[in-house]
Simulated scan of single mutants.
Amino acid sequence: MLFDLLTRDIRMLEEDGCALVRQVRSLKPEQRGQIPAIALTIYAGESDRKTVQSSSF
């Protein structure tokens, strides 16, 4: 099954959503490594905003 969009909470209790998106981004394009991603959270701080806006995300 292929998906067209990745949505992820960046502030989860036991997992870092940003790390997951970086892991997906490390995949080859044919493995869907360039799938569009949306980061969501209700607990965001200034550092979270900077992280998701940076090229490392």
Rank of each mutant, 00 (worst) to 15 (best):
E46P: 07
T51M: 13
F3P: 10
A19C: 00
F57H: 12
D16E: 10
R22H: 02
L20E: 06
C18A: 14
D9Y: 08
D16P: 08
T7H: 03
L5H: 12
V21T: 15
M1K: 09
G17Y: 04
G17W: 02
C18N: 11
Q23S: 14
Q34C: 05
T7N: 04
K28R: 15
T41K: 03
R8H: 07
L20C: 02
K50Q: 11
Q23K: 14
E30N: 11
P29E: 09
P29H: 06
V52E: 02
D48K: 00
I10D: 05
V21G: 01
L13W: 00
L40D: 00
A19Y: 04
S26C: 14
F3K: 11
P36E: 09
F3M: 07
T41M: 02
G33L: 13
Q31H: 12
L40V: 14
E15Q: 09
L13H: 01
R11V: 09
L40Y: 09
F3V: 07
S56M: 11
E15A: 02
V24P: 10
K50H: 05
V21M: 07
K50R: 13
I42L: 02
I38C: 13
E14R: 15
F57C: 14
R25G: 06
Q34Y: 01
S47G: 04
E15I: 08
E46K: 08
L20P: 00
Q34D: 15
G33W: 10
L5I: 13
G45F: 00
T51K: 12
A44V: 00
I10V: 15
D9W: 06
D9F: 02
